[in-house]
Each structure stands twice: as C-alpha cells, then as structure tokens.
C-alpha cells in the first residue's frame, strides 16, 4: 500500500501502552484511508516504544515510523516537532490525525504552520471526499454552544486533532502486516533550541482516572465550599466506587483541584453513571460529559440546563438530598 498521500496518525502512549485516543485514531484512520484507497501509517515517538509498533501494525498500520530513543523519553515540543517534520517530509502523508490531547493540540498547530497546511482542532466528526481527498469536519465553536461544519481547502497536508471518545477504536488482528521504519537516529541531531525538559510533576488528583472511570460524581460552584466538596462529592464517589469530578465553576471557586475539571478545557469523560451536583449544566461543561450513559442532576434551580441532559433529576438543596441518597446507595450496595 502506498503510504505517500495517505493518512498518518500521531500515536501516543500512556504508562507504556498505546493510549485509548490512539486506538480511536487508528479506527478513524482505517476508515478514511479505506475511503481514499490510500495507505495508513503511524508515527510513534518515545523511549522504549518499540514493542508498541507491532501493536499499531495489528491495529491496521501499513507502516509505523518509530522513533524509539532515550532523548524522546520526555516531551520536548521542539524535539518532537523536528522528528515528526522529518517523518512528514519522508512519508508525505496527505492527512495527519492527532488527538485533542495535551501533546496533540500542542503539536498540530506547530506542524500545520510549518507546512502551511489546513488545520482543524477538536473535531468530533470527520469524513473525506474520495475524489478530492479533502476532509470535512465537525467541531465545537463558542464553547460548544454550536458546532461548525467545515472543509479543508486544497493543501498538501491536512492536520486535524480529534476529540477523545468521539471515534470507534480499531480492533487488533494478529495477521496484519506492516513495515516498521526506525527514524529516531536520523532525526536525533544536535538540539540547539531554548527549551529544556526539567521534570514531570504529579498532581494530587492524578490517581483519579476520570477518562476510564465507570462512575463519576461531579460537583460545581453550587457545592459551596471545599468541605462540602470533600464530604458530598468525594464521599459519595467513594460509596459508589467511582471517582470525583468537577466543573470549571468549582475550580474557579477553589473547591476542587484543577485536574478534576471536566468539560471543554478539561477532561472528556463518558462513564456509565454521571452524577452532577450543584452543576448548572452549561454547555462548556456538558461537552465533556454528555455522552455518559446515565446522567443524574441535583440542583436547586428547576430551570438549570443540567436537567435537559439528565435522565434523572431532583430539584432541591443537595445538602438535604445527597446525605439520604448516599446512605440509601450504601445500603443497597451492601446487599
């Protein structure tokens, strides 16, 4: 399969595994490459990433550009960009798919500006015109109040970032074949830029894995205080065997740590159960959780938009509702 003018994905890893967005990108990439009758490739950077290249092949990559090198262990945007630029110049993909992640959203504009390509960020739907090869995309604007449909103008490179949990992941198969091309050595060079990675920093709420959680109890500005957040949000989450989350309102009021933020500029989640307490349900927040299986809203305001998204709702003061709800849930879960 011809890789040039095809689809390339930017593979990311988390704790030594391919991250879930990468599997989604492979699923999307397979669909688009099939439609355009072109090859699908992946670019994988990091240290000790070699075993994952085979996995990308199993997920459908015709070629994997692998830069497995100690100097890529940590993220230096300028070094990462130079490696990927080299891969793009070599492989000449027409389309580059990246996750709307910390690295994907950082790298995409760098590359698009460098190659003067077309760029669309945070896409939730993507398709390609099989004749022109140009992408059409749907992405949120105005904080998610509206969605914009757009198409790329003719460009030698089209870069997009894709919203987590918006695409069906690729299914692995053992019998696939693909080429693994090592590029790390070639791209290494002597980095003379002004950026130096110093250290990673763990954040208190880091152990909370919102993206993978089955149950999330989230609190908003209406929770009123840090004590209430601890008692009702974290406490209820513990009873349900879930994790706590927060809206931007709770963060701005300093009730909750920043890493718990769910929404447009925070985490995108889709648990089985999402309990929203004292959250008004502004679209910027709901963008991050509206695909949850069951949404429960507890709010004093019967007009709060949370009830437009919720499957179950109680209108009333959470300080009265939640203790009874917590106790009953605990009771039910014991039996």
């Amino acid at each position: 399969m011809d890789i040039s003018a095809g689809v390339m994905i930017f593979a990311e890893t988390a704790e030594g595994k391919l991250s879930s967005i990468t599997k989604e990108l492979m699923g999307l990439g397979t669909r688009l490459a099939g439609k355009l009758e072109k090859g699908l490739s992946a670019v994988l950077l990091g240290a000790g990433t070699e075993p994952l290249a085979t996995e990308l092949v199993n997920l459908g990559a015709d070629a994997v550009y692998l830069a497995d090198d100690a100097f890529l262990e940590n993220y230096n945007p300028e070094q990462y960009a130079s490696v990927i630029e080299h891969v793009i110049q070599t492989a000449k993909p027409a389309i580059l798919l990246m996750g709307q992640t910390s690295r994907g959203a950082d790298m995409a504009p760098r590359l698009a500006f460098k190659f003067r390509g077309a760029l669309a960020m945070d896409c939730v739907e993507l398709d390609a015109d099989s004749e022109t090869g140009l992408l059409t995309h749907t992405r949120p604007v105005y904080g998610g109040i509206a969605m914009a449909r757009a198409r790329s103008r003719a460009a030698s490179l089209q870069v997009v970032t894709v919203r987590a949990k918006s695409q069906d992941p690729a299914e692995p198969a053992d019998d696939r074949e693909g080429e693994i091309i090592a590029v790390g050595e070639r791209a290494r060079g002597e980095y003379a830029g002004g950026m130096k990675f110093l250290r990673p920093v763990a954040v208190e709420a880091d152990e909370v894995n919102l993206e993978e959680a089955n149950i999330i109890v989230a609190g908003g500005r209406g929770v009123g205080s840090t004590e209430n957040f601890k008692r009702f949000i974290e406490g209820f989450a513990r009873i349900l065997g879930g994790v706590p989350g927060a809206s931007r309102g709770a963060l701005d009021s300093d009730f909750a740590p920043a890493n718990l933020q769910i929404g447009l500029t925070g985490k995108i989640v889709s648990p089985q159960l999402y309990v929203a307490i004292g959250i008004s349900g502004m679209v910027q927040h709901m963008t991050g959780c509206s695909s949850s299986k069951t949404i429960v809203g507890i709010n004093t305001d019967p007009d709060a938009s949370i009830f437009k998204y919720a499957h179950f709702g109680i209108v009333g003061d959470f300080e009265q509702v939640v203790p009874a709800l917590m106790q009953k849930c605990e009771e039910l879960l014991k039996n």
């Binding site: 198409r151 103008r153 949404i295 919720a310």
Partner: peptide, 15 residues
C-alpha cells in the same frame, strides 16, 4: 490553505 466553514448548527440534547 486553512479551512472553510460551511455552516454552524446547535446540537440539542434529546434526553
């Protein structure tokens, strides 16, 4: 090249 927006629409929750 950039991109060309064709339209905006407002998604409506259906719950």
């Amino acid at each position: 090249a950039g991109i060309e927006e064709t339209e905006h629409f407002i998604p409506r929750p259906t719950t």
